[in-house]
Design a protein around this nucleic acid. Structure first.
Lengths: 212, 212
DNA sequence: GACTGGTGGTATACACAGTAGACTGACGCA
DNA sequence: TGCGTCAGTCTACTGTGTATACCACCAGTC
């Protein structure tokens, strides 16, 4: 296993993000990244053993962009800070975001974030045995929401939802029919994200108080 | 835009799933699927306009595998039925699962499922204006959990979590340290999924009662 | 019987992907 | 002077999605 250089690794990750922004994640090829740096593709293999490893590093870079929360925050604020931090990253790098759900976050930055959530839940009074589960639930929601938002699972507006309905006879979709007027309205995703998060923190608090 | 044949579409989707099971989702190439059917790759283009369209159809097939809930279930049971149905699909086709989060579910089967959740929430007494949000929250969790479980975001066991910790000095990870004994234990994902879902349904009920 | 149109494929070819392997040139140090 | 390491190049192989062109068959219909 040959040793890898690391001098220009950050530069390469930036190039990969730039390419992703310009041509989408599928456009991130070794050739494209190399070209962005005026290099040959094979030069990258001195820094990353494979394309997969490069993409893992890109994900690590994304997570590292989340600023650490100030020390004096309460547990809810910590959770919100981290969640909003991830969402801000998503806004900055929407096209790179699918990485979040397609590969495990094994980078140091990822571990650090999980640890902060653990601490937050512990100070909230969650029993030790429940902490890992609730961390998984929260992170699943946050990553899932942010990812759905940017990759289109939540639909790209009313036009889309109308088109989907048209595939089936309306009488087979009573729920959609009953909600016809709600579904046309545009959604403020930032607000929805905040409310969902508040609800989930309420849930945590509820579990704490009912366990006591 | 040429018209597509549909006679052998199901057969092709089965072949794609079989290839995914054998060689992983990345192994699903037009050539591999064709070979599985003793065809040339180009024969598939009579049935699907592109590989993307084929994969969308595979996702539709997965969702169509979820059995419709019996008519006499309460709203919580409907939600649980659908959630467990999706999870069962995930167990049957783990390697195809990343499709769930990487492309929007625009198939009729997907629309039908969303509609059933809408109906469930309405009968639960959720105000119309809140229904779409809660559906998104629930589906985000369900898809996210199932997807995390099968694609490894939840880690592949204690060995993995130990390895992750080793990347950083332990004194930087007080949360992980405090939970050392919990984190080694194996997790019953089926149970965790059920408990999470129960908690989320409790949350829905709480919102209903506090809105009244 | 010839003509037409649709169905269900094949054959060939192109541009692009990841990456193995061998190589080149520059630089620091003995 | 010569050796080792670093940084990057060049070439080539295999595999990918898919456009274009073609062919064989079979049901009607004039």
């Amino acid at each position: 296993m040959r040793k890898l250089k690391d001098s220009r690794r950050p530069e390469i990750l930036d190039a990969a993000l730039a390419v992703a922004a310009e041509r989408g994640l599928d456009g991130v090829s070794m050739r494209a990244v190399a070209q962005h740096l005026d290099l040959t593709p094979m030069a990258l293999y001195g820094y990353f053993r494979s394309k997969d490893e490069l993409l893992d590093a890109v994900l690590g870079r994304l997570l590292a962009e989340i600023p650490p929360p100030p020390a004096d925050l309460g547990w809810r604020e910590v959770v919100e800070h981290l969640a909003n931090g991830l969402r801000a990253v998503a806004v900055r790098h929407p096209s790179a975001l699918p990485l979040l759900f397609t590969r495990p976050a094994v980078s140091p930055a990822g571990v650090r974030i999980v640890d902060m959530v653990y601490q937050a839940l512990l100070t909230a009074g969650v029993p030790k045995a429940e902490v890992p589960r609730l961390e998984r639930m929260l992170s699943t929601f946050v990553i899932g929401h942010v990812s759905s938002e940017t990759n289109g699972r939540f639909g790209t507006g009313s036009l889309d939802s109308l088109a989907r309905r048209a595939q089936l006879p309306p009488e087979q979709l009573p729920g959609l029919q009953a909600l016809a007027d709600q579904l046309g309205a545009p959604v403020d995703w930032t607000q929805e994200f905040r409310i969902d998060l508040r609800d989930l923190c309420d849930l945590v608090e509820h579990l704490v108080s009912s366990a006591a």
